[in-house]
């Protein structure tokens, strides 16, 4: 008899740690052959609440990092993914991808981290402005992180899904909570392990597995969440989220939900922009020495 393989345990990723769900619940996503892939945590609203606490705590530090530093950390994530690509390909195949699809998705995921790593210190230059007001003031608008942003992964693309949500959200200094694809959750947690080894501070990224539909009302109604990105395809859920979000006027967006994650046009800085706020600052400009006007 051959050697018995040591199986991997998948847990949640909250505040830089890997706890089991506080609810003690689990579920078993099935592989193509109908065998359970793993016992996944079925995260509860309290797990989500804990994630928000962790994410909120991390906002000041993460948004206060220099853009260059955030850029380096995102790039580091890409490096670590590349280093672990064999594992991710294997896991994607387990979750139903062909070998070719798995390779392509890992490539795209690594490249997506690199793409948004590059934007960290550029998007404010593209989307900011110095505004020529008609008075003696210096006036500029720049983009700032919103704070805590929650994202709901699409069901397909177990790795590219969380990657595509996380990279643009955290590039601008937000902290994030993502709910993984219910049917293909493994890669999200493996990604968490990569993140945990990539200088991403604890709490900046939090990953939950379970049932997004169950969590969504709690996400929408949570008063300390600043924004939600919905990439699911349930019209009723999307509508309900808009209703729930009115409680604290959290920003909600379905940007890029009409595009495939593998589409060439997916990558734009506009998804990053969707989770920032425009801040405009005014300051007087002294006028001395203008032609002959004295003071």
């Amino acid at each position: 008899m051959g050697r018995l393989k040591v199986l991997k345990t998948y847990k949640l990723y909250i505040g830089g740690a890997f706890p089991r769900t506080e609810s003690g619940r689990y579920y078993q996503p099935k592989a193509e052959d109908e065998k359970p892939m793993a016992n996944m945590c079925l995260a509860s609203r309290k797990d989500f609440r804990n994630s928000v606490v962790a994410a909120r705590k991390a906002v000041a530090g993460w948004s206060g990092r220099t853009a260059y530093n955030r850029s380096q950390i995102l790039y580091r994530i890409a490096e670590m993914l590349e280093n672990n690509r064999a594992h991710f390909e294997e896991e994607l195949i387990l979750q139903g991808s062909s070998k070719e699809e798995a390779t392509a998705e890992v490539d795209a995921s690594i490249d997506r981290w690199v793409y948004y790593a590059g934007w960290c210190d550029k998007y404010t230059q593209i989307f900011g402005s110095v505004n020529p007001v008609a008075s003696s003031h210096f006036n500029f608008s720049t983009l700032e992180a919103m704070g805590v942003v929650a994202g709901i992964c699409p069901e397909d693309h177990a790795l590219l899904g969380p990657t595509s949500i996380l990279a643009p959200i955290i590039a601008s200094g937000n902290t994030a909570i993502v709910v993984a694809s219910k049917s293909r959750p493994l890669s999200s947690i493996s990604l968490a392990e990569v993140l945990n080894n990539s200088d991403v501070p604890g709490g900046v990224i939090n990953i939950l597995t379970g049932d997004a539909q169950e969590l969504l009302p709690h996400i929408g109604a949570h008063m300390d969440v600043n924004a939600v990105w919905y990439l699911g395809n349930d019209a009723a859920a999307w509508k309900q989220l808009q209703v729930d979000a009115a409680g604290n006027l959290k920003r909600i967006s379905d940007i890029n939900s009409d595009k495939g994650l593998m589409d060439a046009g997916w990558e734009t800085p506009y998804v990053l922009k969707a989770f920032t706020e425009v801040k405009t600052t005014w300051h007087p400009i002294e006028v001395i020495g203008a032609s002959g006007s004295g003071y």
Binding site: T281, W282, H283
Partner: peptide, 16 residues
């Protein structure tokens, strides 16, 4: 969204 430093309540069409 709008922060006035050493001034207040200024408005301009060019200023978001």
């Amino acid at each position: 969204g709008v922060v006035w430093a050493n001034t207040y309540n200024k408005f301009d069409p060019t200023s978001p």
